[in-house]
């Protein structure tokens, strides 16, 4: 699919979200092109994670609309959006801590392949979901801990597990919420490699991230958020040399 033909995969229109009278997201209109790697930066409290929550359906907007492909998904729940091809990670890893690593990924594979509602069929060693899960674990270098409980993993391994889950979900749109937060420096490269791998397969990635060098090197475009609004969206060179962006950061840098 060529970029020109595909056009926008995600479009938010005048998206707003407020809680108890506090405006957290103010009229964000963002267009994400099919196949691009878009990073979202901004000072703390700018609303970056809230934007991801809105797009993944974890919270519902108070105003505005979200379109995915050509479908309006504003009123859809997270499960429907996941089925349509939106997947996300969390700042603090969100996996099933009491289940094994393999089971974590297998459940994601089972969810994608269907048949999750069956009370009769049991998961098998060699069914398709398990095979998919094993492949994903291998690619994330987690096969050694497949039978460990996820709760016992190191912080970086939990991050890898999240990405392995994403990989079997085969999303069209990937939302990464600070994928490197808490990871050691040498692990960051591994994590980014996995994310890049998913992107290279033609998927669209929207990433919230603090690491500015990382953002600059990996992104096609950068969106800057400030006080719940969208300040600008442009190529990394333009954004990073823009005076208003610098001001937004410095102004908040108390």
């Amino acid at each position: 699919m060529s970029v020109a033909e595909a056009g926008e995969i995600l479009e938010t229109e005048d998206l707003s979200w407020s809680v108890g009278g506090i405006h957290i997201i103010r009229g964000v209109s963002l267009r994400v092109t099919q196949g691009e790697f878009l990073s979202v930066i901004g000072p703390n409290g700018a609303g970056k994670t809230s934007l991801i929550n809105l797009v993944s359906g974890v919270v519902r907007p108070t105003a505005g609309a979200i379109r995915f492909g050509r479908t309006d998904i504003t009123r859809r729940g997270p499960a429907d959006r996941a089925k349509a091809g939106i997947a996300r990670t969390f700042q603090t890893s969100s996996v099933f801590l009491e289940r094994t690593v393999l089971e974590n990924v297998r459940l994601a594979a089972q969810a994608r392949l269907g048949g999750s509602g069956s009370l009769f069929r049991r998961p098998r060693r060699n069914d398709r979901a398990t095979e998919l899960a094993r492949d994903a674990l291998e690619r994330s270098a987690l096969q050694g801990v497949a039978y460990k409980q996820a709760g016992e993993l190191t912080h970086a391994d939990k991050r890898k597990l999240e990405l392995a889950i994403l990989a079997v979900q085969r999303p069209k749109l990937l939302l990464l919420d600070e994928p490197t937060s808490g990871a050691a420096a040498e692990e960051v490269d591994v994590l980014i490699d996995i994310a890049r791998g998913i992107h290279r397969e033609g998927n669209t990635v929207v990433m919230v991230e603090h690491h500015i060098e990382l953002v600059a090197s990996i992104s096609d475009r950068i969106a800057v958020m400030h006080n719940g609004g969208l300040l600008m969206v442009d190529s990394p060179d333009v954004v990073l040399s823009d005076p208003t962006v610098q001001k937004a950061y410095l102004g908040e840098g108390l």
């Binding site: 993944s56 974890v58 729940g77 997270p78 499960a79 429907d80 996941a82 089925k83 997947a87 996300r88 969100s94 996996v95 099933f96 801590l97 009491e98 289940r99 459940l107 994601a108 969810a111 994608r112 999750s116 889950i165 979900q169």
Partner: peptide
């Protein structure tokens, strides 16, 4: 999975 992390289940595309 639901018992432990319902949001994760939902985000896997399961109602």
């Amino acid at each position: 999975g639901l018992k432990e992390n319902p949001l994760r289940v939902e985000l896997l595309g399961l109602h």
